[in-house]
Nucleic acid binder design. Structure first.
Lengths: 247, 247
DNA sequence: CGCTAATTTGACCTGGATCAACTACGGTGG
DNA sequence: CCACCGTAGTTGATCCAGGTCAAATTAGCG
């Protein structure tokens, strides 16, 4: 858990260290990044579809998501983001955003100028590699979501999502003991899975009834991890985490 | 179209030039890459799920796809690849493959050692940037597929896929006049869209009946591009092509 | 010509969508 | 302290896009 003594950008360090090892020099360079800290309300757009970005946004606290609105008000959420994530890191190389990015809860973020990121990666190629690594893991997560949407039942798909979100939080010290925060509504869950919110509700009830998980008041409790992993056919290797690479 | 006078790695040059501009120096450096050319049969694995890669594979001719097999023999295809694509480029940074990659047709590929790629990108940071750019576009394609699977009907989703595959081929000189090669079976199409092959067949018939497209003998003819774009709600910006960025 | 893979068809079924209330609950203001 | 209100969660009834099964037809190809 973060303490008041941590460096403000500590979540980013923690995130990268969950994937690879940082040298002291690299850690210091990251902590030396210039940034503007901002407190945001829940459900607030950070970057809009079509924007051209000149800075990137590191999540320090709270949850965010990337999404796209399509015809008839339908929304598809691509990914959820927690402390340490830089959801718009790709904007560094393709400034034109082809989707939006918004907070889900009240959140604290740090805006870091592209300029500064470029300078950092130019001076420390190891950091550049680690940021790329992170972006590739991100792409791997997309692939898993694709599998889930294409070839799994609603039940299995949601089980998979819970496995992922638990492990990602665990990796950065935000989850333990089969319990983590999950401050998203059933409508959000529906937009992420491609299901209707009514069906999400029914699947959650079924999971609760079967003693798999409980999701209430923004808290996910995993009652039976092994069974959750089994139905989701979950293999955490795609997250490429240093510890607990396999669930 | 490629001629016998082209450099063997010309497809890669052409692909990168569809996204950005290469300097003469960069073009020459790319053409100087060491490689092993291989002719492959159709439906042949190139890289298997779980492999650790030490070279990457450039498609010179024919089609390939990335995919993953899940329980009960279900398969999900993530992406189709044509001449100029390096489907396993990410293996350069995350050698452990979390999915497979196989040819769909007979194909010619070039294997390029990671060593040589790393050397190239170290010497030419512009080439490195352009390869990354390509990988980010790839991630953008995943996001579009996610939208299609999550929030569009089978009909609209397939229309979107045809728009994408036509434009990607056009960008590298493999398509023109609303006509392009599409050497994939209806089963492949089903595995890519998450539909059943029976339903794919019915949707194709409906499209044919409505004068939208014809797909027969591995050739896609787009009879009504505007209507195809309209039903797919297609916006080609995500492909980040230099010309015709918007459909 | 004969085989196999691919496409097509028909009948039937079901997971999940849609529609329409209704309930629970945490503010918030009087 | 309670009435009010908006958001999130639940429930039931009904519907349909797309799945499944099984068989028939057609296209390629050696």
């Amino acid at each position: 858990m973060a303490t008041e003594f941590d460096h403000p950008l500590q979540p980013l360090v923690r995130k990268l260290e969950s994937l690879t090892i940082l040298s002291d020099e690299e850690r210091e360079a990251i902590q030396g990044l210039p940034f503007k800290r901002r407190a945001l309300n829940a459900r607030q757009d950070v970057v809009r579809d079509g924007d051209t970005a000149s800075q990137c946004c590191l999540v320090l606290e709270g949850w965010a998501c990337r999404y796209k609105i399509i015809r008839e008000g339908k929304r598809q959420i691509f990914s959820f983001h927690i402390a340490g994530d830089i959801p718009d890191l790709q904007g560094l190389h393709i400034p034109l955003m082809d989707h939006g990015f918004a907070t889900m809860t009240t959140a604290t973020v740090a805006f870091i100028p592209h300029e500064a990121m470029r300078d950092l990666t130019a001076r420390f190629s190891g950091v550049a590699a680690k940021l790329w690594h992170d972006m590739l893991v991100d792409a791997g997560i997309f692939r898993q979501w694709l599998i889930c949407m294409g070839r799994r039942s609603a039940y299995d798909q949601m089980a998979h999502l819970f496995c992922e979100l638990y492990l990602r939080q665990e990796a950065v010290g935000l989850a333990a003991d089969n319990r983590c925060s999950m401050p998203i509504t059933q409508v959000d869950l529906a937009d992420a899975t491609g299901l209707s919110y009514v069906h999400v509700n029914r699947v959650l009830q079924e999971m609760r009834a079967k003693g798999l998980i409980t999701l209430r008041g923004g808290v996910l409790v995993i009652e039976d991890w092994d069974e959750l992993v089994r139905v989701a056919e979950f293999d955490g290797a795609y997250l490429h985490q240093r510890k607990r690479a396999v669930a």
